[in-house]
Design a binder for these strands. Structure first.
Lengths: 216, 216, 216, 216
DNA sequence: GATGAATGAGATTTCATTCAT
DNA sequence: TATGAATGAAATCTCATTCAT
């Protein structure tokens, strides 16, 4: 099943040859401090009303320092989201690797997603702290696109292996993503929160659709 | 089928007896002017970077006048969104009235939604001008909730009439909404834009799921 | 003793001949409503940060109506203060009438003042609600001046009657007023509040000074 | 006599070791510029009608800079007043040091106060530019309280040394302050302005009272 | 690279006042 | 006379960003 995956989530491989010096280390530390402060601030007062100032204030750094790392709050948010999505993407890759067949992949993928939502969900804010919804223009960061395309590619590959019938894979991937999002939102509002049930529901829906075939 | 609907989107008819005076008329006109200006501004420079100032500037009114009608740009956006959703809700009501059976209702509802998306989509901005996604905190305006609850009620009613099997109607409604959203986003990016195909895709998915029954 | 007083507290005698019609009555009611609202507002948020709007809002009247009665918040404040001082002035007049000699007048006057302070003192605000201190430029309303001049005249008259020695009556009246003010401020902060003690203290001081005679 | 004073107006001497860098120097300069501009503005158009804008305008600084130093016009005014009172407090300390007995202290203190009023009196505004009365809520800044308490302590100490009889020292200090204030106001309005006469008047009054003893 | 004060444009919002109804 | 929406000047304050230290 792992051949479904063209390439992994990537990430910079620059660190492999050379150990980071003290300078680079300090830089990484500062960057991380800013990111975490931003996370906190966004979660507390909301992305929109947050300002670069608010972020810096939550930091031990000086205002000017911010600009050595990011050009704007938008950039921080993107980095934050990208990190979040990258975390999910890594899990999706694991799922893909371990899956023995398409059904296992689908069920594992939904489960991974809903577990992820539960983990990142901040009950104080009544929302996942960093997610698509946080950035005003829904879902167009590179990582999001990448996840979407991976899902589409996975479906296509399954089709080529004869595991799923012919379909409009674009719509199909969109339907999966949309379902997962909305069902996820409802899931976290229920008590008890049950990612297993949410995953089953979505996976069942997908298999029902696939069983019907291309004509619907 | 029309018995599914308890009451339509309504709106108070209290105003019928007395004609509004010049004052009241002017107020309505001003409110509308602000709303349209806001719509224009959001479409042009985006919700986030828009300011109250920008909205006022697009208006023949004085700056202070804005605050006689709305307390913030968020409030205008909400009003704008509510109006938009109310328009869709009215169509959904029509669909429900005319539908001879549950299948007709489902197909009609998706078709109505995608037609609606096409109409409200602003190709210049590459997005539907006013929709849930536009407001940073995703979707919990009264109208949105109302639409969601209507859909859920429709499903339940159909279940009671024996037209659909037992299901987690909350998740099911969420899945429908999520699918419609994401598929709608993809639809408008395709050329040609084909709301019929999108509607068929989603309706088919729904019927596939329903055919499978509660166990998936 | 009553010959000390040149003229009484005055007030408009216009009402004497003609009974006020309904119109005039309504006017008086509105004026009073505004004054009381202003009193409340000043006591709550302070004179300086209060606005005409705040006053109107505390009223059943419309904004435009305010300007039929007062030209600005300053004017309301002055009216308020004048009313307050006029109330004290009336009492001072009573004291003067009843006093059998200068000592009785002085003791009665201080007592009247400290009783007055206690009554007008708003413990919530920790200050007398309407007093000189409320208007930024200390003490120059007509009523205040009038009270000051009455006191000076009383001293001079007593001097002419041989009850007090020759003195700088301007400074002497000022000293009395200043003592009364500051001692009053301290008095209301003590527990229990004891206007009798404050009055005794001040009166004693005055008589000590007078006993010493013009050379100090 | 100098043993009356426990500690002088003080101020931290911590800065002695290290010379302030250019940054710190600039900060001090800017702060001073704002304070002087505020002083000028208050004297010209009055405290109440002055705005932060007016103050900034009188400055070579940018508008935002104001807020690096003060949070509001109230805060500037308080700082200004505190500085003014601190100046007087320093003189009072000198008087206390040099006084050979209580009488010398009292006469010197009143003289110092009235001289001070004359110096700070702005004849253009017809009032002392910065004084308690200028701030709407009368007199409770730290420096004011400190001066009041010093006076009370001085009285108590004199009592312990047997120089003055037992008294209500709180009321007595209040009476001194009140007299000084009001007499000061009258003094500056006279022509010629005679601080010596004002001081004599007040000091005489105090000694008259003290000579009478606690029972009045 | 880090610092943090200065900048000044600009956003929000309030305000006193007017005036058509 | 009362009303209350409209006005637009003006006040407050924040902000992202720069740059001397």
């Amino acid at each position: 099943m792992s051949e479904i995956l063209a390439q992994g989530p990537g990430g910079d491989r620059s660190g492999s040859g050379r150990r980071p010096g003290k300078r680079a280390e300090a830089k990484a530390v500062n960057r991380e401090e800013i990111l975490q402060a931003a996370q906190r601030v966004f979660a507390t007062i909301g992305y929109e009303s947050a300002s670069v100032r608010d972020i810096i204030r939550e930091t031990s750094l000086a205002s000017g320092t911010f600009y050595n790392y990011f050009r704007s709050k938008e950039e921080v948010a993107e980095a934050l989201m990208d990190e979040s999505i990258a975390r999910f993407r890594a899990r999706l890759t694991q799922v893909r690797r371990k899956a023995v067949d398409f059904e296992a992949y689908v069920r594992g993928a939904f489960r991974a997603y809903f577990d992820f939502v539960v983990e990142e969900y901040d009950s104080a804010r009544e929302q996942a702290v960093v997610r698509a919804g946080h950035l005003p223009s829904r879902g167009e960061t590179p990582s999001q696109k990448a996840v979407f395309e991976e899902i589409r590619a996975d479906l296509r590959a399954a089709h080529e292996r004869g595991e799923v019938p012919g379909l409009d894979f674009g719509f199909f991937a969109a339907a999966c993503v949309g379902m997962a999002r909305e069902v996820g939102e409802r899931m976290v509002r229920r008590d008890p929160v049950d990612p297993g049930a949410a995953a089953s529901f979505c996976a069942d829906a997908v298999f029902a659709l696939l069983a019907r075939g291309p004509e619907g």
